[in-house]
Amino acid sequence: MTKLLEVNNLHTRFKVRNGYLHAVNGVSFSLDKGEMLGVVGESGCGKSVSMMSLIRLLPPAAQITEGEVRIDGEDITHASVSRVNSIRGSKVGMIFQDPMTSLNPFMKIGDQLVEGIVYHKKITKAEALKQAAKYLKMVGISNAEHRLTEYPHQLSGGMRQRVMIAMALLNEPSLVIADEPTTALDVTIQAQIVELVKDLREKLNMSIIWITHDLSLLAGMVDRIMVMYGGYVVEEAVLDDIYNSPLHPYTIGLLKSIPSLKTEAGSRLPSIPGAPPNLFTVPTGCPFAPRCEHKIDRCQTEVPALAAVPGSSGDRPHRVACWVDMRGRGVEQ
């Protein structure tokens, strides 16, 4: 069976004032139909840029320099602009972080929702609006027909994010990329949106990539987790393996900084010392080395490859990019 999504050695960089900013440095992963992948990492580690690169939704200064992306086996990196447009309109849906600014204030919700499908599916606007109302109901918006005639400012933040979700689902995509869809919302709404996505995923059987910097949010939601650092994938495994036997020092650090019920009130959460890497130069060793407690000499001179952990089996094993074998030295949770 071909995978829904295959990404091989993807590199994306930005042209900046004097040189390049290397935002994505060789990302490889794959996604099955119906699978849900969580992508985590600190701010600036390249989560958004790598996932936007999948459908080439990048600003003019950005450039994919290497690697390839296949959706349903079709090469996206080398496809024509119009082909990419039609893939965006039919196979991939995006949900963004900030629902307050993701809707055009000058267009009615309905007009905005149907823009894509009217164009790509060649259906009439009335039909499209009916469809839109159906999806608005599905994402839990009451009074959907009326909402279609309203402008974005008439909706609350949580409702707008529901609208954005409906918008992403309307073209019945097989892949939905959600870029920190709950970060801008308050906690109760966050939980509602998470529940909604879980529910929709079951109903519609789509694959989802959920980007977040909050590892704890992914518990009970995703199948696999991919951890990114400095534009590299440093670890990838099924949810339980990441939580129970993390192998990369960075993943371990992230897990330690999650507050748990056992954390005593008032005690300080451990955080990873040091700052995220400077992306203007390509590192010659492990990108995490400057902040790593476990580093050895080799870490400074050779970039560790993302490789299967010995002993893990299957089509997609637990993968980690580290020169030191951290098995048995991880978190005790």
């Binding site: 600014t101 993701s102 790509h120």
Partner: peptide, 13 residues
């Protein structure tokens, strides 16, 4: 603007 990005993500030309 994000809404321009969102429209691009829908494949609006």
């Amino acid at each position: 603007k994000n809404y321009v990005l969102a429209a691009e993500a829908l494949g609006v030309p």
